[in-house]
Each structure stands twice: as structure tokens, then as C-alpha cells.
Design a binder for these strands. Structure first.
Lengths: 112, 112
DNA sequence: TTCTATACCTCCAAATCTTAGGTATTATTT
DNA sequence: AAATAATACCTAAGATTTGGAGGTATAGAA
């Protein structure tokens, strides 16, 4: 498996917000697995990055949590607050815009 | 002007390598202006990030420099070494791959 | 003469990430 | 039965990267 996480740098919080925006709720481990799956096992969110990021989003009031015991293990579900939904939309838009710019730099002949 | 630099995080060195791969040589200030121009003034490489990044690339042996006086001002031109060309190709490929994965996350219905 | 643009640089602080650990349960393999 | 893998949470230390603020200096325009 490729350890190619470079592009995730700085965009982890937005990725989390995007995943949460598409679902009612998700728990941390689920997020790591989802990113692995979407990227064909080529990208991986490390737990040392994920959990602090989730806690920061919670501190910012963008997500709320509810803990449940499922099959004997504790799961902490995260979901977007009202403010989180607004902020998610805004950050996603910004990231897409930045992505387009980056593509322009990398592939000047093919983009936009 | 939009201060939207977020996506540059972690990819600045690769962006520099890409710009240098397309040209014989560039100097620092020119790089900042080129990125501004490509991104319609929406993105900006700060000098506090650029110069340390250039110096690191030089220390890694990926670029060499030659200083010239042009119109009374010193310019330090950077160009890729042989190793730099190989490394540039490799890092650019990686970044494009990461970009595609990120697009998959952001726009699951439209990408690849 | 003062400001803007050009052109280089460094230092400090903040943010982010990786690595490496830790705890605990369940399921699978040996 | 014991060990390993998978699930599920977490933190701490250190490295890296970046932004912001500052510095120096020249040329040209206002």
C-alpha cells in the first residue's frame, strides 16, 4: 500500500466535514476505513492525525458526538451541527477552488 | 485578493519542481509571480515559505543556483539538476495521483 | 522624496502531521 | 488455549511546513 498522504496535508478537516455532510453520522474508525476504500487503499488517514482533528472540530462547535456501545466496543459517533453544515459547504467550496488552481499549475494545457 | 493557500500545504516543493521542469531556470520572485498569474491572483506563495523551500531543494541536490545581476538587482536563478528532473517527475506524478483521490472524496459522483 | 515594485533573506510562532506508544474488546487463526 | 488481527478509542513527542513579521537593498514612478 502506498503511503501517499501528501495532499491530505491541510485538508484533513475539510475531508472529514465532507464525509459527514454526506451521512447522518460517522465514527472515527469508520472515517479511516471510508477514505481507504475511496482511494483504493492508496491513502490513509492516520489515527494520530484523525482524532486530534475530530476533537478540534468538536471544540469549534462544528460537530457533536454521541457514544454508543456496539458489539461490546465503544463507538463515538460524530455528526455536523447546523453551523458545521454551513462551514462544511464553505470549506469544501474553497478546497475545490484550490484544487482547480493546483491542477492549473500541474497540467496547464488540460485544465479549465 | 483571496488568501486561499490551503491546498498548497505540503505541495509547495512539488509546485516549484513542476515550474522548474517547464523552464530552463527561474528565480524566486519570478516563481511567486508565476503562481499568482496562473491562479488569477487568488493564490500566493509567501516568501517566508518559498525561500526556505528553495534552500531545502538545493540542500537535497535537486536544484542548483547561479546568481546574476540584472538591472542593478541580484537574481538567484534556480534550475533542476539531473536528479532533480527525475525527482520532479516522480513527485508530480504522486501529487496528481493524490489530487485524483482527493477529487474522488470531494466529488464522488463526477470523478474517475 | 516618498512610495511601489523588484529581489533577496531570516526568525518565531502556529498549525499540522507522523511515529510511536497506550488501552480494551471481539474474532480469527494457529 | 494462545496468539494475532481487526475493531475502536486515545495521547505525547518530535518533525515539518507554513504564515507573518521583520530586515536589507536597488530602480523607477509619483
Amino acid at each position: 500500500m502506498n503511503q501517499n498522504n501528501s495532499i491530505l496535508k491541510g485538508s484533513l478537516a475539510t475531508i472529514i466535514l465532507k464525509l459527514l455532510a454526506e451521512r447522518e453520522r460517522m465514527y472515527g474508525y469508520e472515517i479511516t476505513q471510508k477514505v481507504k476504500q475511496i482511494t483504493n487503499e492508496e491513502m490513509q488517514i492516520t489515527e494520530g492525525a484523525l482524532y486530534p482533528a475530530l476533537h478540534k472540530l468538536e471544540a469549534e462547535g462544528l460537530v457533536t458526538t454521541e457514544t454508543e456501545i456496539v458489539e461490546g466496543r465503544a463507538r463515538k459517533y460524530y455528526s455536523l451541527t447546523k453551523e458545521g453544515k454551513t462551514e462544511a459547504a464553505s470549506r469544501i467550496e474553497e478546497l475545490i477552488s484550490s484544487l482547480k488552481h493546483l491542477q492549473n499549475i500541474l497540467n496547464p494545457q488540460f485544465s479549465i
